[in-house]
């Protein structure tokens, strides 16, 4: 906080005279290993390109890592060779990244952490967070309104992680006492093929399923293919999540099987980079926690969440 205030003040006062004094923002994110991360990479690149135009005094270093160890190396390199003034990091895993990011903070640089928190509190200056229990809650509330008389549903979970646990807990809390019965829950690992297989088995096991909480759009695609192949017409709708463009398109077009979506926007990396840039170049305070809510997308507002250029 103190560092930031001083840096901000210096930037604000010194800027007109010393426009050539460039500041470097390092951005370290996981590589595009699945759909959501692909979208996140796209939005990070887009934010960097755009902000380099807006702020000529800012330089950006963008590094993508395929595992936590590589990300640690990236961050160490940024600090050692690029002398970064700020770091925007979406940690691959909390534990291994906590030490290296703390070292960046100790060097006096501004630290913005995105989505996944660090294992130790108080390291970062700004935390831009997705709301996982909110994601589950919004999904559960939609389920409740779509099945007012209750019903039998099955749910697919992601890769076993805290993220997944928070989402499921939020969902279960929201549907409590609504008469909605969760027949079954299995891990589809945020993967189309796995969710296809799990849904095929759910369809063999349960003769009557009213709706599916696929909890993710990649999994929703697998689920829809399994339902179609089985020729079952008892399933009224599938609720995905995260806002994949193809699924948002179907919601916008009024597809009865995909009536809604719940966002968990990969563009939150853009929010984080933008806020960091604002913090470095102006005196506007941006420290603290910025929680990005999960929003219910229906046919009425789907166009606002449709990004045709994004890979996700």
């Amino acid at each position: 906080m103190k560092h930031f205030a001083i840096a901000g003040l210096m930037a604000a006062t010194a800027l007109p005279a010393m426009a050539q004094e460039t500041m470097v923002i390092g951005v370290s994110i996981p590589a595009a290993t699945h759909g959501w991360a692909g979208g996140m990479n796209f939005h990070a690149q887009e934010a960097v390109d755009r902000l380099e135009e807006v702020y000529p005094q800012l330089d950006f270093v963008l590094a993508t890592a395929s595992d936590p160890a590589k990300q640690v190396n990236d961050i160490e390199d940024m600090l050692a060779t690029r002398d970064i003034d700020a770091l925007v990091v979406l940690p691959f895993e909390s534990e291994p990244l906590t030490g290296p990011v703390a070292a960046v903070a100790d060097s006096g640089a501004w630290v913005t952490v995105v989505d996944r928190g660090l294992a130790q509190e108080g390291i970062e200056d700004l935390y831009v967070a997705g709301d996982n229990s909110g994601f589950g809650r919004v999904s559960g509330e939609y389920m409740r309104s779509a099945l007012p008389d209750g019903g039998k549903i099955v749910a697919l979970r992601g890769i076993p992680t805290t993220i997944d646990n928070e989402r499921v807990a939020g969902f279960e809390e929201a549907i409590e006492g609504s008469g909605i019965e969760v027949l079954d829950m299995e891990h589809g690992n945020w993967n189309r093929d796995d969710s296809f297989t799990v849904m095929q088995d759910f369809l063999s096991k349960h003769g009557e399923i009213d709706a599916v909480w696929a909890s993710d759009d990649d999994m929703a695609i697998g689920v829809l293919a399994a339902i179609e192949a089985a020729g079952r017409d008892d399933v009224q709708f599938v609720l995905g999540g995260a806002g994949m463009k193809e699924m948002i398109r179907r919601t916008a077009d009024g597809d009865a099987m995909i009536p809604a979506n719940v966002t968990y926007p990969p563009a939150m990396i853009g929010t984080a980079i933008e806020l960091t840039a604002v913090g470095l170049t102006s005196s506007a305070p941006v420290s603290g926690t910025f929680t990005i809510g999960s929003v219910l997308v229906t046919q009425d507002n789907a166009e606002d969440y449709y990004f045709p250029d994004s890979p996700f």
């Binding site: 590589a31 595009a32 759909g35 692909g38 796209f42 990649d218």
Partner: peptide, 11 residues
Amino acid sequence: VTWLADGGTLS
């Protein structure tokens, strides 16, 4: 394949 798909999915 990640590169061909630009990090996303080829459909």
